[in-house]
Amino acid sequence: MGSDRKSFLTARELCIMSLLTVILFLQEQILNFLPNIQLTVFLMLLYTKCLGLWKTGMIVTVYVLLDSAFMGSLNPPFTGGQWVAWMAGVLLIATVFRKTENVPALTGGAVLMAFLYCWIMILPTMWLLHVEFLPYLASDLLFEVILAASSALSTLLLYEPLSKLLRKLLKYTEQN
C-alpha cells in the first residue's frame, strides 16, 4: 500500500538537507577571505556519500542559486556552469567512489573533484570575460592547487568523524 512505501524525502530529511545547505553556503562566506581555501568540495563529497546523488543534487542546486545571487553572479552561463561543475564532481563521487569508505581513496576523489570544478569553470569564464584558455589556466593553476590541497586536508581530517555523525543523525530521523 502507498502508506507502507518509504517516501523519497521525509520532512525531517528535508530539514536536515536545509541545514546542510546553510552550512555549505555559510562556510564559503566565512572562509571567503582565504584564497580558495574552503570546505565546499569536502562537504559535497560528505553529502554525496551520506545522502546519495539525488539529495545532494538538490542541495547543490539550492546552494549554487543562493551563492550566485549573493555574490552577484546570477547569470545563465556562470550559474549554469557552476552547477554543471559541482554536479560533475558529485556524480564522480556517487559512481567511481560509491563503494569505498577508504579515506585516502576518497581524498583522491576530493582532489579530482576540485580540479574538475576549476577546469569546467574555465569555459564560462572564457566566454564571459573573453579571456584565452592558456593564460587563464596559467593564472588559475596556483588557486586550483590550493583548492585541491585544502579539499584533501579537510577530507583526510574530517571525513571519518563527520560521516559517522551525519549517518547517525540520518538514522535517528529514520527511526523516529
Binding site: 584564497p35 581555501i37 579515506v103 585516502p104 581524498t107 596556483l142 588557486f143 592547487v145 590550493i146 585541491a148 590541497a149 585544502s150 584533501a152 586536508l153 583526510l156 581530517l157
Partner: peptide
C-alpha cells in the same frame, strides 16, 4: 592518511606564500 595530510599542509603553505 597522516603523510597525505602533511603533504597537503606543505602544498597549502607554499601556495599561500606564492600568492
Amino acid at each position: 592518511k597522516w603523510i597525505l595530510a602533511a603533504a597537503a599542509v606543505v602544498v597549502l603553505a607554499v601556495g599561500i606564500f606564492l600568492i
